[in-house]
Design a protein around this nucleic acid. Structure first.
Lengths: 207, 207
DNA sequence: TTGCAAACGGAGGCACCCTCCATATTCTAA
DNA sequence: TTAGAATATGGAGGGTGCCTCCGTTTGCAA
């Protein structure tokens, strides 16, 4: 009768309403399933077999379903995680590269993401249709992340300050949208270089 | 030259290599399956049951598979047809409305399309991933169609001539991309009105 | 009419979906 | 350390959908 949990939205994971900590094996298995799901969805798209995911994760199908009661829940968890990784990449790049270069590398990483995870994109189309919040959430997170890169560049006088993060994301989406030919990646990578060059301020500060 | 019968690449239907005409019942059933598939995919998305399609079409599952050997083939046929209808709508609107108004109505029709056929969008994401030609084909057809509307408006001095059909389509896609809230349709319809107003030339010709 | 190629429909074998519960594992408190 | 409670596991099972195969039906030409 306790257990009204089911959490704000996220199910299945850590303690929330009830102050209890999940068991160690539960955490481990949850992780395994997520890892396997990432691979399987990337490869096979949104209709990929969940039993296949469980097999690859080395857990029973029942375990998979306890952690993620629906296909959408599983996909959503995988996707949120990917978004989080892209956000973290921003932090890492800030430490390693000049502002403009960091932006360029981050955009390139996104292209790689799209290219590697083809199936995930189709799955995303399905998932956002059933749960619009997911799109809103990821847009916010990514906008904020790009915003940091831009602000840093602007502060350093390396990048113009009249282009907002939404514009950059929209450009990225637009460029990745037309996956009409086998060599679309090359094309988009070139476009990104051009785009970042366009964002650069010409009169460079010392350094 | 009437008809050229649809077949650009499409398999399954009419004569091609062999000069034989398909049987009447074959044509009829093919049509029924397409109609049913449109409804079922729109409602249920790309994973919808093909046996369900066959049931709704009133044909056996074997018949469905003879006409469309794979799920993708079926979806592709449905989608090509939808694109064709949007193209035909352009012709109809040219006869019925002023250039700018025709453009406005056509864009609105696209929003309705997206709204009604939610499932089709997810299916499209899947299908284009497996067959990039499909995207290229539909882009071309739609670009050409919008191009006609724009050219007509420009010729009549109603619409500016420095915006190309690709720009208009990109704007449309961009506006429909953010289906993040239940009332996204209202928002997009407003944006379309604004957009078309923006395309209008101020000094209007007589009429 | 008749003959036959073309088309039909659905049975059958297999994979996957998801639920349920007997069993196994982890945690806690003594 | 250990026992018992709480929690988690895994896979059997009933149902649905996928797709192939083939005996039967139908349209069409002669």
């Amino acid at each position: 009768m306790q257990e009204a949990n089911d959490e704000g939205r996220v199910k299945s994971g850590a303690r929330a309403g009830d102050g209890r900590k999940p068991r160690a094996d539960a955490i481990r298995n949850r992780e395994r399933v997520l890892e396997a799901a990432k691979a399987v969805f990337s490869q096979g798209g949104p209709a990929a077999s969940l039993e296949g995911v469980a097999r690859q994760a080395g857990v029973g199908i029942g375990t998979l379903y306890r952690h993620f009661p629906t296909r959408e829940a599983l996909f959503e968890a995988v996707y949120r995680r990917e978004v989080e990784q892209l956000v973290e990449l921003v932090q890492a790049l800030k430490a390693e590269a000049s502002p403009a270069e960091a932006l360029r590398l981050w955009l390139r990483a996104n292209v790689a993401f799209v290219a590697t995870k083809k199936g995930m994109l189709a799955a995303l189309a399905l998932a956002t249709q059933k749960n619009p919040d997911l799109m809103a959430y990821s847009s916010d997170r990514l906008t904020q992340a790009v915003g940091e890169l831009l602000a840093r560049g602007a502060a350093a006088g390396e990048i113009r300050d009249d282009i907002g993060p939404e514009d950059v994301l929209r450009a990225l989406i637009g460029m990745c949208y037309a996956q009409d030919r086998p060599d679309w990646q090359d094309s988009v990578l070139r476009l990104i270089d051009v785009f970042v060059d366009g964002l650069r301020l010409r009169g460079q500060p010392p350094g």
